[in-house]
Measured scan of single mutants.
Amino acid sequence: MDSLVVLVLCLSCLLLLSLWRQSSGRGKLPPGPTPLPVIGNILQIGIKDISKSLTNLSKVYGPVFTLYFGLKPIVVLHGYEAVKEALIDLGEEFSGRGIFPLAERANRGFGIVFSNGKKWKEIRRFSLMTLRNFGMGKRSIEDRVQEEARCLVEELRKTKASPCDPTFILGCAPCNVICSIIFHKRFDYKDQQFLNLMEKLNENIKILSSPWIQICNNFSPIIDYFPGTHNKLLKNVAFMKSYILEKVKEHQESMDMNNPQDFIDCFLMKMEKEKHNQPSEFTIESLENTAVDLFGAGTETTSTTLRYALLLLLKHPEVTAKVQEEIERVIGRNRSPCMQDRSHMPYTDAVVHEVQRYIDLLPTSLPHAVTCDIKFRNYLIPKGTTILISLTSVLHDNKEFPNPEMFDPHHFLDEGGNFKKSKYFMPFSAGKRICVGEALAGMELFLFLTSILQNFNLKSLVDPKNLDTTPVVNGFASVPPFYQLCFIPV
C-alpha cells in the first residue's frame, strides 16, 4: 500500500510540474494548442506526416506557434517570411542545433551535424575549407563525379535492359564520391566492405524516417530501456565508426604531411598542428563522427533524390523527352556531361530543381535551437528552445509555385524558357546551418541524371499514369515507394 501511495504522489508531482512548466512558459512563447500533461501535443500531431499537421496548425495559430513534445516546448516556423527572418536575418541567433537524443547517444555531441557552439563552428569551418581545397564546386571533385558517372552508366548497362530496382546502384554512385573525398578511394560496386557500408546507410535513412524515431526523440528514456529499431540505428553508426577508425589508422601509418590526399589526411594534419593548443576540438573521436556525418549527409540524401527523380521522369515521359532533346543538342553522344553545360541547359536545370522542390526530401529539416534569449515577432523565446522549420511550407508555397503539388519544371523557367532562380528554393535548409555539401549534391544530381539520360531511355513496367509517387515514409525524410524500371541503351 505504501508503495502505491508513493507512486501516486510521484505521478501527481510530475503532472503538477508539467502543468507549471507549460503555464509559466506560455506567456512568453508564441500561441499554440493546449498541451496535455506529460505528453504535450503529441496526440494532435500525425507522426506519419508531421508536415501536414504543421500546415493545419498554422492555419489556426499563424506562421509562428508553439507545440509541446512531452514536456519540451518547440517553436514552429511556417512559411517563407518566418523562416527567412529566423535563419537568414537572425542567422546567428537561430544557428543552434536542437535536442536530438538519439544523435546524442550516437555521437556524444561530436561531428558537424549535431554539434553546437565553438566545437560546431570550428569543425564546420575546417570541413568547408577542406572540401573547397579539394575542389568542391571546382574541377578536381567534378572529375571524381564524372568518373563515377561513367562507372554508374557501365553498371546500368550490365542490367541488359531487364527490369531492376535502382535503389542499390543509385546509392553506390554518391557513396563512392564521398569515399573518394574521405578515403581517396572508390570501391567496386561488388566489394563486400562497400556493400556493408551501403547497407547500413540505407537502413539508417529508413529507420530515421519512421514514426518510432519521432517518439524516441521526444521521450528519450525509451532509447535506453525499450527495444526497437533505434538500437539497430545505433549499432549501424557504431559499425561505421569502427570502419572509419580502421581507415584512420591506415592513414596514420602512411600519411605524407607534405601531400595530403583526402579529408582524413587533412584532419590528422590539423590534429598535429593543434596538439599544443589544448583542449582542441580536433580529436580522433571528432574525426570519426565528422566522417560519419559526411557519409550520412552525402550519400543517402543524394541517392534518395536520384531514385525519386527517375520515378518522376517515368511518370512524366514528356519531361524526359525534353531533357534528352536538350542533352542531344548541347552535349551530344561523344563526350561526358560537365558542369559548364548546365548554363546552356535551362530546361534540365529546371527539372533538377523541380525534383528537389517537389519531393521535399527533408520536410522539417533537422531541429534548430536559439543560442540566446531572443525577441522574435513580439515573442520571447528562451535560450536553448528547439525550433522546428517547415521546409515544406517554403518549397510548396502556392504563391511562389502555382499548383505546388504538381510536378512542373516551369516553376523554374521564365516566359522565355530561361532558368529562373527562386529564393524559396531551400531543399538544403538556409542560413548558417545550410548543408555543407550543397554544391557537391547539386553537381552530382546534374551529372548523374544527364549521364543516365544521355545513355538510356527509361521504360516503366506499368502505365506511367498508374505510377504512385507518394512517399512511403514522410517523417525525417521523404522516401519514394518501391518501383522497377528498364534502362534501355540509346
Rank of each mutant, 00 (worst) to 15 (best):
D468H: 06
F487A: 01
L461D: 10
F412Y: 05
F476I: 15
E285R: 07
Q356I: 12
K270W: 06
L152V: 06
R329H: 13
G384R: 04
T371K: 11
H344G: 12
S220H: 13
V490G: 04
F134M: 14
Q193Y: 07
E300S: 11
N176G: 02
S460V: 03
E300P: 03
V248A: 07
N231G: 09
I47L: 14
N259V: 08
T302H: 01
V83C: 13
T299K: 07
K48S: 12
P337G: 06
Y379P: 00
A161C: 14
L170V: 04
F476Y: 06
G32R: 01
H230G: 12
L294Y: 03
I47P: 14
I264C: 05
F412P: 00
E300R: 08
Y225V: 10
T469N: 03
T299D: 01
D256K: 09
F376T: 06
I141A: 04
K158H: 08
A161Q: 12
P227Q: 08
I359V: 14
T66I: 03
Q214P: 08
K160S: 09
E400L: 09
I39S: 05
L312D: 02
N466S: 13
Q356N: 09
L287V: 03
V436A: 13
V292R: 03
G475V: 06
E93H: 10
Y243F: 14
F476E: 04
Q340G: 12
V5Y: 13
A161M: 10
L90Y: 14
T385M: 05
V479W: 07
H230I: 09
I327M: 05
F407I: 01
N258D: 14
P402C: 10
M255T: 09
L445K: 03
P471T: 04
F446R: 01
E92D: 14
I213S: 15
V5G: 14
M443S: 04
L366S: 11
M240T: 03
I359M: 08
T470P: 03
N398I: 09
L195S: 06
P33H: 02
I488Q: 14
F376K: 02
R329V: 11
L467F: 03
A441S: 08
W120H: 13
L447R: 00
T305D: 02
M255I: 14
T385D: 02
K72T: 10
L17D: 15
Y379K: 05
F219I: 11
P464F: 05
I331R: 01
E328W: 13
L313D: 00
L17A: 14
E104V: 10
I178E: 02
C435M: 01
E92L: 08
V237P: 01
P35Q: 05
G98C: 11
A297D: 00
K270G: 07
L440P: 03
V330G: 05
I331D: 01
S343W: 10
P409R: 00
R335K: 10
L413D: 04
F110G: 08
L413R: 02
E300M: 15
K118T: 13
A430C: 10
R433N: 00
S53T: 12
F376R: 03
V323C: 13
L440M: 06
V76Y: 07
Q484H: 05
P481S: 03
Q192I: 09
I42K: 07
A321G: 12
H411Y: 02
N455F: 04
K459R: 12
V490Q: 13
R26C: 14
N217M: 08
D414I: 04
C372S: 14
R329A: 11
Y225G: 07
C164K: 03
N455R: 06
E122F: 04
D414S: 06
Q340S: 14
T470W: 04
A86T: 10
P163L: 05
S303R: 15
A309F: 03
V8D: 07
H78F: 09
K59Q: 15
L311E: 00
K232N: 06
F134S: 12
N236R: 02
L449P: 00
T159S: 06
I205H: 07
I42M: 14
E203I: 03
F219R: 06
V64K: 03
E85I: 06
T55P: 14
G437V: 03
T301S: 05
P337H: 01
G91I: 03
I434L: 14
N403L: 06
N41C: 05
L29T: 03
D468V: 11
L11I: 13
E438G: 15
I452A: 00
V60H: 11
E272D: 10
G111C: 03
Q22P: 14
T34A: 11
F295E: 01
M406V: 14
A477H: 07
L29H: 04
E300D: 03
T229P: 15
R144I: 15
A291N: 01
N56E: 10
I223T: 14
Q146E: 10
K421T: 09
M406A: 15
F476C: 06
Q214F: 11
L380Y: 12
V352G: 03
D188M: 03
N334M: 12
T159D: 02
L54Q: 03
K421E: 08
L131R: 04
E199P: 01
G171H: 10
T34C: 11
S220F: 14
W120P: 08
D360F: 03
A173N: 00
F446L: 02
D89P: 09
P30H: 02
Q146N: 06
K48P: 10
I169L: 15
L458F: 04
P63Q: 11
P279L: 13
P30S: 01
W212C: 07
V60L: 12
Q192N: 09
Q192L: 08
P260A: 07
M426L: 12
R132A: 05
H410P: 02
P346L: 03
L54R: 03
V113F: 10
T66V: 03
Y189N: 04
L9Y: 14
L54G: 04
A477Q: 07
F376G: 03
L9V: 14
M136A: 10
S365G: 10
L7M: 13
P489C: 01
N41T: 05
S280R: 08
K383P: 02
H78M: 13
E246C: 06
F295D: 00
L362P: 00
H411N: 11
T348Q: 02
H184T: 13
S51E: 09
I213V: 14
N133Y: 07
T450V: 14
E142D: 02
L458M: 04
N289V: 15
V472N: 09
I39P: 02
E199K: 09
F94D: 04
F263D: 00
I374E: 02
M426T: 11
P35G: 12
P337E: 00
G40Y: 03
T392G: 13
S58Y: 13
P367I: 08
R307G: 01
F448N: 00
P409L: 02
P402R: 13
